[in-house]
């Protein structure tokens, strides 16, 4: 082990330690004081900057979760999660990648809103993924004419499929509208207005939905799907051929054969128009 590695472990340990923890012992051993600041005060500049930076970024990524939990509970959750799951990526974009798993192991941070919070986290993480994931050459309506049962299709990498217990898409859209009307700085939203949103979110009743989070012209949208449509798309994503996917995904369908035939045609036409399908990469 190098001296540099050991030194950096000690400094990073202090900088990334929880905000309420004293870093004086490490600071005094590692950092020189000057005529204006003690060793602790100098290292504290980095300590505070670290937490402000990652909390700001986290807050930007999960405004819906914040509205469900309320600001205080959200801050408690943020600090606990980021202490347990510090960034492992060169980009802050991935800061929330482990949040759903972590909250499942620490449900006490969401209290009675656990199921709703998990759904919102899945939606908000899918939103981040849909924004900047890759786009492959899409199959257009003319390509559909040549589809055979053996062909394997792929979903665009930017399309995320979610089966949710709560209609959190409506909540997130309402919140976006509210934030747009009051400026992007969500913390600047008046407290009564925010409390109103929190109350509305807390009252939400379960209502299972199937959702595609996708983008059009670089803007992310949420699109509700029929259960059969969702299962069919999932099957394509798993690598099944068109024939296999139709058999497995639609085995328990409630539609009559003629109606189902019409539905399938409509779905494929919509997917082609949206550019969701592509050839499976070799």
């Amino acid at each position: 082990m190098t001296n540099l590695l050991e030194f950096q472990r000690r400094v990073a340990g202090a900088v990334m330690s929880p905000l309420n923890r004293s870093i004086s012992a490490e600071a005094n051993q590692l950092v020189k004081p000057n005529d204006r600041l003690t060793s602790t005060e100098r290292l504290n500049i980095y300590h505070r900057q670290y937490w402000y930076r990652i909390l700001d970024s986290f807050n930007e990524d999960f405004p819906g979760l914040c509205s469900i939990l309320g600001e205080r509970a959200f801050e408690r959750l943020s600090r606990a999660y980021l202490a347990d799951c510090p960034s492992q990526s060169f980009t802050l974009r991935n800061l929330g990648s482990r949040l759903a798993t972590w909250l499942t192991e620490h449900p006490e941070f969401a209290g009675q809103h656990f199921a709703l919070a998990i759904d919102m986290i899945r939606l908000e993480w899918a939103h981040i993924d849909a924004f900047d994931s890759a786009e492959r050459k899409a199959l257009g309506p003319e390509d559909l004419l040549e589809l055979g049962p053996e062909l394997r299709l792929a979903l665009q990498p930017y399309v995320r499929l979610l089966a949710l217990r709560y209609p959190v898409d409506d909540l997130r859209v309402q919140l976006n509208q509210h934030l747009n009307e009051h400026g992007a700085a969500s913390n600047a939203v008046s407290r009564p207005a925010r409390r109103h949103i929190v109350r509305r979110f807390a009252r939400l009743k379960p209502q299972p939905i199937f959702l595609a989070v996708h983008r059009v012209d670089f803007t992310v949208y949420y699109r509700r799907l029929d259960a059969d449509e969702f299962r069919l798309l999932e099957s394509f994503g798993e690598g099944q051929s068109i024939g296999q996917a139709l058999d497995s995904a639609l085995a328990g369908t409630e539609f009559e054969p003629a109606e189902l035939q019409q539905k399938i045609q409509t779905w494929f036409a919509n997917w082609a128009q949206l550019g969701w399908l592509s050839s499976r990469p070799s």
Binding site: T2, N3, L4, L5, F7, Q8, R9, V11, A12, V15, M16, Y46, Q49, Y50, R53, I54, P86, S87, Q88, S89, F90, L92
Partner: peptide, 22 residues
Amino acid sequence: SVDGRYTHDLLPMPYTFEAAEI
């Protein structure tokens, strides 16, 4: 960064010969 954990900050170097070489 250290041990795969990122601070997302530009932390100053210890000005040592070992650090310069690495």
